[in-house]
Design a protein around this nucleic acid. Sequence first.
DNA 1: CCAAAAGTGTTGGTATTACACCCATGT
DNA 2: ACATGGGTGTAATACCAACACTTTTGG
Lengths: 243, 243
Amino acid sequence: MHAFNEQDYIQQLSIDCVIFGYQEKQLKVLVPKMNFKGDFWALPAGFIYQDENIDQAARRILEGRTGIKDIYLEQFRVFGDARRTNIQVLERLIQLNENELGDKRFDRKEFDWITRRFVSIGYYALVDISKVVPQQSELDASIGWYSIKELPTMIMDHNEMVEKALETLRLNLDQKLIAFNLLPQTFTMKELQELYEAIFDRPFARNNFQKKMLELNVLERLEKKFTGAANKAPYLYRFQPEA
Amino acid sequence: MHAFNEQDYIQQLSIDCVIFGYQEKQLKVLVPKMNFKGDFWALPAGFIYQDENIDQAARRILEGRTGIKDIYLEQFRVFGDARRTNIQVLERLIQLNENELGDKRFDRKEFDWITRRFVSIGYYALVDISKVVPQQSELDASIGWYSIKELPTMIMDHNEMVEKALETLRLNLDQKLIAFNLLPQTFTMKELQELYEAIFDRPFARNNFQKKMLELNVLERLEKKFTGAANKAPYLYRFQPEA
DNA sequence: CCAAAAGTGTTGGTATTACACCCATGT
DNA sequence: ACATGGGTGTAATACCAACACTTTTGG
């Protein structure tokens, strides 16, 4: 982001990323808090270089925030209302940060860029949360995982973006067999079920869920996992398409 | 398109429309032929005004080509490869039209705009083909309906766009009950079935299809349609949600 | 031997498909 | 009366959700 030169990018077009992770039986989203006075959150975002595919741009942005390459990601919708910006929120941001913005020319320029009308392409990503070390950018005050049930109020239409991303995720989950991107390499059937329950926000019947998953013929059963608990040890599974 | 001023639009972002119609048992797409020497086809397209929602822009473009307001339309995907342009095709276009482009400054300017790198938002639309009077723009040599089975080879990735649009249409058809947008107000069950068969490119069982459609509870049965043929007269139906 | 949780099998209902039959229409 | 195509009913099948039972584990 140093030597920020807006000519390098496509104007007025941005990418916003909804990065899903799974931890403690909750579906979470990676959200940075903006480095402005006041409490402003915004989804990880970025712009597209002139010679860059939009998918590449999304990958670059995701890698920058998570530190991982090879992330599962998918475009889910374009957000292009002329007044996507919530004016009240933006005015509050400007008001609270007037002094700082006046002082630093660099920030001012970036601020002008950011407050223009933008059309944004929404991507969602699925990551193994244990592999991610969230990367705080210069524009962030902090960055962290928030449960989809307790998301902060974000700027513009970013909360709506998360909702649409989740809708698309639910529609695609069975179709494209992508849930496994949210889990570590090996997992128990119960963990997989709890992930599904977190995503769909409803319970599944244990036996039928197991049957359904096994009949997909994409799970490889490995050794048992002895937890020390006084019950039958569950098998570990690995995602193995067409094995 | 007169007094074309590129400052009014968002730069490097366009909208391409796949306009579906249905006629003679075939699913068709409205495709203009470009007003250049050589045979170049391109989907109806346009740009987005600075103060215009992208959906509004799509509506404006659609109205311009079809003459109808209130068209069913839906965004289906963004096409953003850096090299969407098929270089060979473009070079052939330039070569064949060198003289004309050199002569007219206006065209030249527009040509430069068009040959920049563009990210394009794909919309598909469903229209009652009998209500459409295709509007030829100044940039068109002609405009017409082409069966999806006999589409001309179009510039850039426009053929791929039609494929993706059709995929999305198939996925959404039952879910969103939108097929009726392709038919006149009243239609027989057979016509509806033939439409489905054209869209999915496969036959449906007559009785089961009828049952499925009637159980949706969105069809209102009207009077019979006497065709003069020596067989039982079919009923006419009208689409009537939650009646 | 018991509690807890995992794994598997069986049943009953529902939706989908295939098959069969009857009805209206004009010649 | 009959050929043609429209409308409806029924049987067979596949699919899915609920229930029951067995197995493994450590105390």
